[in-house]
């Protein structure tokens, strides 16, 4: 069995491959256990295929893809996507900005499924959650969300009342206001007209209350 490359060797391999592919090298961080993490920001989404092709040629594995809004509360613009790869023991995150920095106009991102088949679900998920357009996705249907829900729901503002399905329309509010203005009869509760429905209390049918009605025990003959 061939010896596994050391983290330092893997760093060097990734540095060289990405320098050749996109003329950039990642920065590196290390955690308390000595694991190595590479970070590279690509200035343009057009650079993504070249970087990804280099990683695919090196037999890196796509771990996952994380789309996010760069600023809290920004529901429309300034999206970025972080692509996370593993090469043996080291992880590399390639981040792509998918908006025009001058106009803040959203830009589409090329699909990486030609190099990494398992990007399929990841790309469909960020498309529906963040309303990001993907170029040349092989199967661009919804992954989790129903077609009736708007795309980009991850950063959408959903009022709490809508979340609880209690304010699907203005109907309830208009009814309350109409009652207040005397246009509709007041609810029966306020008019003191509550009539309890007739039902048999559960305890009345319990064994302790039905014993009297039970047939007498048959006495055994002596």
């Amino acid at each position: 069995m061939e010896p596994r490359p050391t983290p330092a060797e893997l760093r060097e391999i990734l540095n060289n491959d990405l320098r050749d592919a996109v003329s950039l090298t990642p920065s590196w961080t290390t955690n308390a256990y000595g694991n190595q993490y590479g970070w590279l920001r690509l200035p343009r989404a057009e650079d993504l295929p070249a970087a990804v092709a280099a990683l695919a040629a090196r037999k890196a594995r796509l771990c996952t893809v994380s789309a996010y809004a760069e600023q809290r509360g920004d529901r429309e613009k300034r999206r970025s996507i972080a692509y996370h790869f593993a090469l043996d023991s080291v992880l590399l995150t390639l981040t792509v900005r998918i908006y025009d920095p001058d106009t803040l106009e959203a830009l589409p991102v090329p699909s990486i499924t030609p190099w990494f088949r398992n990007a399929d679900w990841n790309e469909r998920e960020f498309k529906e959650m963040f309303n990001i357009d993907i170029i040349n996705h092989p199967n661009p249907r919804r992954l989790f969300l129903d077609e009736r829900l708007d795309a980009g729901i991850m950063t959408g503002l959903i009022p709490f009342s809508s979340l609880l399905h209690s304010a699907g329309s203005k109907d309830l509010w208009e009814r309350v206001m109409a009652e207040k203005a005397g246009l509709l009869p007041r609810p029966a509760r306020e008019a003191g007209e509550i009539v309890e429905p007739a039902f048999t209390p559960v305890e009345r049918t319990g064994p302790e209350n039905t014993a009297a009605a039970a047939p007498p025990k048959i006495q055994e003959s002596p």
């Binding site: 996952t64 994380s66 996370h84 990841n122």
Partner: peptide
């Protein structure tokens, strides 16, 4: 199991993603 965390200096994550 993979976790990605992006923080903006506040006490709430800007993005927490897991795969």
């Amino acid at each position: 199991l993979f976790y990605y965390l992006h923080a903006d200096g506040s006490d709430v994550p800007l993005r927490l993603k897991w795969r």
